[in-house]
C-alpha cells in the first residue's frame, strides 16, 4: 500500500484506505482458510527472553534449534501438525506444569510465558504489541500449527 497519497484528496484517501482494508481483510481471510490466520499473541521481547530461557533449560533435551533430541522436536510439521491438533492452551499448560523434565514446574510463571512466546515464534506465529499473559495463554484455543 502506497503512502504517497499526500497530494490526493481526503476523499480519495478514505476510499483508498477502505479498499486497502477490504483487500487486506480478503487476503487475511484467504490465508486464514489456508492456515488459520495467526493472531499476534506475544511481544518480540518475550520471544527473545524465551530464547535465552530455552537455551538454559530446554535445549539440552530438545536441541538448540528445537530439532529434537531425547525430547521431541518443538518446531516444524512433526511437532505442530494438523493431525496432532494442539492448541496454545494445551501446550502452555503442559509445559508450564511438566517441563523441564528433570525439574517440572521449577521455572517462574514469567519464564514459562516467554518460552511459550518463543515456541510460537519458532512455529511461524507473528509477534505483536500484546504481551502474552497467563490468562491469555491458558485460555487460548488458537490452534498451534506450524506455518
Amino acid at each position: 500500500m502506497s503512502s504517497r497519497s499526500s497530494k490526493r484528496s481526503a476523499g480519495t484517501r478514505t476510499l483508498q484506505a477502505t479498499a486497502c482494508a477490504l483487500l487486506l481483510t480478503a487476503l487475511l481471510a484467504q490465508r486464514g482458510e489456508a492456515a488459520g490466520a495467526p493472531p499476534a499473541l506475544y511481544t518480540p521481547a518475550q520471544a527473545q527472553q524465551g530464547h535465552a530461557v530455552f537455551e538454559r533449560h530446554c535445549a539440552v533435551c530438545h536441541g538448540r534449534h528445537l530439532e529434537g533430541g531425547v525430547g521431541p522436536a518443538l518446531t516444524g510439521g512433526k511437532f505442530a501438525s494438523v493431525k496432532a491438533g494442539f492448541t496454545v492452551q494445551q501446550i502452555f499448560e503442559f509445559l508450564s506444569v511438566d517441563m523441564p523434565a528433570d525439574a517440572p514446574g521449577s521455572l517462574t510463571a514469567r519464564q514459562y510465558l516467554e518460552l511459550m512466546a518463543f515456541l510460537l515464534q519458532q512455529n511461524g506465529y507473528p509477534a505483536g504489541k500484546t504481551t502474552l499473559t497467563a490468562r491469555i495463554a491458558s485460555g487460548s484455543t488458537v490452534a498451534l500449527v506450524y506455518r
Partner: peptide, 10 residues
C-alpha cells in the same frame, strides 16, 4: 498438578 488428556501429550 492440574492435568488434562490430550492425545500426543503426557
Amino acid at each position: 498438578a492440574p492435568s488434562f488428556y490430550k492425545a500426543g501429550l503426557p
